[in-house]
Design a protein around this nucleic acid. Structure first.
Ligand SMILES: [Mn+2]
Ligand SMILES: [Mn+2]
Ligand SMILES: [Zn+2]
Ligand SMILES: [Zn+2]
Lengths: 155, 155
DNA sequence: TCCTTTTTAGGAATCATTCTCAACAAGGCC
DNA sequence: GGCCTTGTTGAGAATGATTCCTAAAAAGGA
């Protein structure tokens, strides 16, 4: 039997499995977010998608980013600079360099104990958590005189 | 010598010490944020301040909240629902109840070890961090059937 | 093919936040 | 008191990210 002619890389088929149609805009949006580690904004994704699909609408990008995040194909994050998306859906923390503004993934995770302690102290049931670290990344530490700068903005 | 007739409670005098004038709008804004534990939005502060100073402008509220936060008299936080302010300037974490939406302070802090571990693993210099926990608060745990609700919005 | 449902593009609307600027208040100094 | 300088305010306009609306196109199913 001949394999389906539109077999895509990644786990795109799971989209269909969960009742999604893998339209052209959706495939491109998902690919853009997954192909970068900058935790892109919707505007960034829009710019990238337009290179392949010039007529795509910004509303379509927002709509599908929201939808893909709601279904767990992407992660959604909010910070002072607005909403960003993360193609890495494994649990991980983040580090923001205050000098260059870059946002890094921090693969390690030290939650179990911390969560348990907070839970017993407060009586809250803890289902999830989020840790953000701030400081200077390796590159910026080497460049002496590069001290924290105010007013980082969007990608 | 007669004491200054405008001696205020709290640490308001420090405002002057740092080169601020303690104007009426500023005093009221600071008092509103310090008097609540709801981590108010600018709109919330605006509503409260207007009760005492009906002619105050929303721009004045934003301007001074930003300024007071920059000087360390308040803390500023961003989440998915927008910018909020915190009268508690001591280092502390937060817990968001996914059922009722309330945001609680978590006075405990388990950072030293976590920070050190992340620093050695990544090579980043860690100057600060932020921890957010999510789950169900004590009140909501008791009310069975009250499960997490989508779309929490502003105060 | 015909019918139904989903998705889209494009533009308008919303809404939080910031900006602009003329008027105003405070303080210092003569 | 008058004058100047500097910081602050209120009102409204501007900005900018996100969402909403809607008619048209696309996809699926039978
Ligand atoms: Mn990430
Ligand atoms: Mn707090
Ligand atoms: Zn850096
Ligand atoms: Zn609750």
């Amino acid at each position: 039997m001949i394999p389906k002619k539109d077999g895509h890389p990644h786990g795109h088929e799971t989209l269909r499995a969960r009742g999604f149609r893998l339209t052209e805009p959706r495939r491109l949006i998902l690919d853009v977010v997954r192909a970068t580690d900058v935790h892109p904004t919707a505007a960034f994704v829009y710019r990238r998608v337009r290179k392949k699909l010039p007529r795509v609408s910004l509303a379509t990008v927002y709509r599908n980013l929201r939808m893909l995040a709601a279904e767990g194909f992407l992660a959604e994050r909010a910070d002072a600079a607005g909403m960003r998306f993360d193609g890495n859906t494994l649990p991980h923390d983040h580090f923001t360099c205050l000098a260059c503004g870059r946002l890094y993934d921090v693969p390690a995770r030290a939650d179990r104990a911390v969560r348990a302690r907070v839970a017993t102290r407060t009586g809250f049931e803890i289902l999830n958590h989020r840790a953000e670290f701030y400081g200077r990344c390796g590159a910026c530490r080497r460049q002496t005189g590069r001290s924290p700068v105010k007013g980082q903005r969007r990608s």
